[in-house]
């Protein structure tokens, strides 16, 4: 990235994101979505503090690489179609 001294920034700067940090390993309970009962309100997506619920083919999709298992999605789901299952 930096070939000479002149390419270096004048201050400390971040070189990469945090995606190497797979926080999914912190989880003890895992949210499991019942797609048949889902009404696609995306409230689970909206309230995920890890931004680890994606929207794929008009359906919420939980990203287990990063989901820490807080259970907010399950608690807020108006149809109660996200179950917390012990890992």
């Amino acid at each position: 990235m930096f070939k000479t001294n002149k390419d270096m920034p004048p201050c400390a700067m971040s070189l990469a994101d945090m995606s190497h940090n797979k926080t999914g390993s912190w989880r003890t309970f895992k949210p499991v979505l019942d797609e048949n009962k889902c009404i696609k309100c995306f409230i689970c997506w909206k309230f995920c503090p890890e931004n680890s619920i994606d929207i794929e083919n008009d359906m919420p999709k939980i990203n287990y690489d990063y989901c820490k298992g807080c259970g907010i999605c399950s608690n807020e789901c108006p149809k109660k179609c996200i179950e917390m299952v012990e890992e």
Binding site: D17, M18, S19, H20, N21, K22, T23, W26, F42, W45, K46, P49, E50, N51, S52, I55, N63, D65, Y66, K68, G69, C70, G71, I72
Partner: peptide
């Protein structure tokens, strides 16, 4: 969606669960 779809907070942050 009731809030913008673009995510500017990436994955792997170090907050506690439910922060």
């Amino acid at each position: 969606l009731t809030i913008p779809g673009e995510e500017l907070m990436g994955h792997g942050n170090l907050s506690c669960q439910g922060c």
